[in-house]
């Protein structure tokens, strides 16, 4: 059982002259939550659709749960669950009717009512879909994806349009699924979401893999500067600051110091201020975020073309 859930080797998919996916390789371990990140049009959706069996590939090897998705057919689909980014429903049916229908299509399945409880639609179970809000629809979508108690779940932007509370509840739900041993392939635009959920993150730009590591590894790997911010004390200006390893910029009274030696620079600043009997209001030391790392990475990739 230690074989990876997903193995992709040299995957290629072209649309006319454009190679939407251009030699992509990665593996996803069993029980792992794996996030695909990348700008719009980077090839994320094409990759996921090939893995889901919706789309053919032009080249490369793909193995998912031991199946080739292109030929796995019904036996393959019994083991996976798919939550599409934008699929509608038959509006004249109730939540429970649709969940029941979906579960009845799988040989191994969840109980419909338990699923409805799981996605917190309990009080909407007998409501027709046309009366559901956007967030409720998304949760119904999730319930339908989970109907067959899948070994591998594809989640395409699962929390787009959720309010912050609903997003946190969805994250808890996804973490509970991980606890059950479900492998999850996630695409998302929310870096916070990838950071919170994913064991590993792959960043795709223009159909190629530009980074693959844990969110923490991605964040620190880019060697981005830490930013020290504070308000200039009254009566001083930038020139009055002590010598720093990083570069200081002022925006009004707010100073930002970008530095690769945050410890040294913070020590110099605070020593200087304490020695001069000054305060540094709003002093904050902010390490680079995943978002900074992501933007640097995708920005670089664009510049390199």
């Amino acid at each position: 059982m230690n074989a990876p859930a997903i193995t992709v080797r040299g995957l290629v998919r072209a649309y006319g002259p454009v190679r939407a996916v251009d030699g992509l390789s990665f593996t996803v371990g069993r029980g792992e939550i794996f996030a695909l990140l990348g700008p719009n049009g980077a090839g994320k959706t094409t990759t996921v659709e090939i893995l889901e069996g919706y789309r053919d590939r032009d080249g490369g090897d793909v193995s998912v749960l031991g199946f080739d998705p292109a030929t796995g057919g019904t036996a393959y689909r019994e083991r996976i669950g798919i939550v599409l980014q934008a699929a509608g429903f038959e509006e004249e049916f109730t939540v429970r009717e649709l969940v029941r229908l979906q579960t009845s299509l799988y040989p191994r399945r969840h109980d419909p009512d338990e699923l409805i409880d799981l996605v917190e639609l309990t009080d909407k179970r007998h409501v027709r879909v046309k009366a559901l809000s956007g967030g409720q629809r998304r949760r119904l979508d999730l319930a339908l994806g989970l109907a067959g108690a899948p070994d591998l779940l594809f989640l395409d932007e699962p929390t787009t349009g959720f309010d912050p509370a609903a997003r946190h509840r969805a994250w808890e739900l996804i973490e509970r699924l991980r606890g059950l041993g479900t492998t999850i392939l996630l695409t998302t635009h929310y870096l916070e979401e990838a950071q919170r959920l994913a064991d590993r993150v792959a960043v795709i730009v223009a159909g190629r893999l530009v980074a693959l590591s844990s969110p923490e590894g991605l964040r620190t790997r880019g060697r981005l500067p830490t930013v020290i911010t504070f308000e200039l004390p009254a009566g001083t200006d930038l020139a009055a600051l002590p010598g720093l390893t990083g570069t200081a910029e002022a925006d009004g009274a707010t100073v930002r110091v970008r530095t690769h030696s945050p410890l040294v620079d913070t020590w110099r600043l605070t020593t200087w201020a304490v020695g001069a009997g000054l305060d540094l209001p709003g002093l904050a030391v902010e390490p680079p975020t995943l978002e900074d790392a992501y933007l640097a990475l995708t920005g670089e990739a664009h510049d390199g073309r």
Partner: peptide, 17 residues
């Protein structure tokens, strides 16, 4: 309508011939 709303696509992802 089912095709346009994505219901057919979801069914294609289920173990249904």
């Amino acid at each position: 309508i089912l095709r346009e709303s994505g219901v057919l696509l979801r069914l294609r992802g289920a173990p249904v011939p």
